[in-house]
Design a protein around this nucleic acid. Structure first.
Ligand SMILES: [Mn+2]
Ligand SMILES: [Mn+2]
Ligand SMILES: [Mn+2]
Ligand SMILES: [Mn+2]
Lengths: 219, 219
DNA sequence: ATTAATTTTTAGCTATATCTAAATAGTTAC
DNA sequence: GTAACTATTTAGATATAGCTAAAAATTAAT
């Protein structure tokens, strides 16, 4: 069973919105995440339903099937492996990789995916800290919380970002926040949720909005 | 100006059939080279004409324009760079790369192409011996003749193959012919054009059909 | 110079992927 | 429990890319 590039993009969006198959997903949510119109989504989910990668009951949203999850995970695997390739081998900055990976993830060649994985030394995480599914679709899950959920005096390590947009990532570069950095929450302003953290002997202030897009493993 | 993937594939075919813009190309030739029908080609060349990458006069075939040649050369450049990547870095055999490169050549990212070129150390030829255009579309041309055109006792070096099909390349692997091999023509059968050559102290017999798909620089 | 053969184009159909506008189903508020 | 609002689907367009069958133009043969 094969999907078109566009079908793969929709399926991937549905997988992410469903939080790995846990929730059902609405037409409007798919439309806004894909930047298309609800009418286009209605057409597409009918097709994805026919191909049995989602269960679709008119007016009641969609659930991704087991088969759909496996398919989505293979696309995500390719996306993240290419991102690692671009950063590790071609010296792309982490804010330059997403769009290119959006294209590369659709290249169809199981041999290519396997060899790329090998060449990159079987990486477990992409440049944004997201886990890379293995060839069977298995993902190493870590218990992560967002920086905005931490308590004052708690320490931990930045392990991922929720937002992979160039604007956000360049801001993190500028202030000196990066995947792997050890941090400690120094202060939290109750009024607006903005925080003060310690990173590499430096004090950093950030808004709640920024903090909520940084993921931490507490330790 | 951007072309769709399908338009890029047609333009590349037209470029190759025209021998780098030297000849005009017929609808039927494009159709057979693209494995589509003449009716589909008529539609496509009308579109390519509108985008001014070819000159098209109904019933009189097409000529690729200057702009069309530059565009085609950039696609060819990407195709061949990816082939080098697959063979040099991912240990693909030379008969496994063409189909994958057909997909990768359409990835749109000037930065990717430039960095890939750099990463591969600015290769001048692909795994089949075809020259890789530089970023300006300039190609290093070498005076090559086919093995079937050589004279008895002439010596030279295999520099490229005309046919990149897996079947042909695996046959060459089996008999021990490869790009870079020094050869000498020992004998030629007038009746059917079949030949006998010396490669690495070994004598090899091959049909005219095979010999005409092997390109030589005489020396 | 006609006629015949070949090549090319056009007409009309299918499939994908998108859109806007209109219709309809479902949900919420009173 | 009906009215109002919101979400979703359907209808009808447009654009791409392919096909077959029929028409038209070019080229070749007599
Ligand atoms: Mn990404
Ligand atoms: Mn994509
Ligand atoms: Mn291609
Ligand atoms: Mn090649």
């Amino acid at each position: 069973m094969t999907l078109t590039n566009s079908e793969e993009n929709y399926l991937k969006a549905i997988y992410h919105l469903s939080e790995a198959g846990k929730k059902s997903v609405s037409t409007n949510d798919i439309a806004s995440s894909m930047k298309t119109k609800p009418a286009s989504v209605s057409d597409m989910i009918r097709k994805l339903g026919a191909k049995e990668v989602i269960n679709y009951r008119k007016y009641y949203g969609v659930q991704i099937t087991e088969e759909g999850q496996n398919y989505a995970l293979q696309v995500i695997r390719k996306h993240r492996l290419w991102e690692v390739f671009l950063v590790d081998k071609l010296k792309f900055n982490w804010d330059e990789v997403h769009e290119v990976a959006e294209q590369l993830e659709h290249v169809r060649s199981p041999l290519l995916t396997q060899r790329l994985d090998e060449y990159l030394n079987f990486p477990k995480f992409d440049p944004h800290g997201d886990p890379i599914p293995d060839e069977f679709g298995d993902v190493k899950a870590r218990p992560r919380i967002s920086l905005s959920e931490m308590e004052v005096d708690q320490a931990g390590q930045i392990v991922a970002v929720k937002d992979s947009s160039a604007a956000f990532l360049r801001y993190l570069d500028k202030v000196g926040a990066y995947i792997g950095a050890r941090i400690k929450l120094l202060d939290k302003v109750e009024f607006d949720g903005s925080i003060e953290i310690l990173v590499d002997q430096k004090t950093l202030f950030m808004s709640k909005d920024v903090a909520s897009n940084i993921l931490i493993v507490v330790s």
